[in-house]
Amino acid sequence: MAINVTEQRDSATYIAIADEMTIYTALEQKNELLPHLKPNHQLQLDLSGVSEIDSAGMQLLIHMKQKAQELDNEFSLVQHSQAVVEVIGLFNLTSFFGDPVVITVDRSTF
């Protein structure tokens, strides 16, 4: 399974997704991720390993964000991979997620 719970604390869960987030993985990932979305809790997804994301994957993230708001869960995305950054940008959802997007690629290699 490409979803690793890297850290599990009483108040927070850190998960790294090391897989694509597409229509093919959406159902599985939903089933994996949603149990970690607990009320008054913190959930952080590390997206650095997301090689590819499509609309279905983005939709899953939106869904989780919305659900988290309902549950008062502090839901955040970190370490966005370029694929994720691109899609969030295209969909103009940066402010919706409200997470600082860090551009991780070293520009000096350019």
Partner: peptide, 27 residues
């Protein structure tokens, strides 16, 4: 140029009815 994109997310159910393989997006 896409000058502004608005993805309407309100149609995504936040309940358990959410089927990740269904498309709820409007743009």
């Amino acid at each position: 140029d896409i000058q502004r994109a608005l993805v309407i997310t309100t149609d995504i159910p936040s309940t358990d009815d959410f089927d990740p393989e269904n498309c709820y997006l409007n743009c």
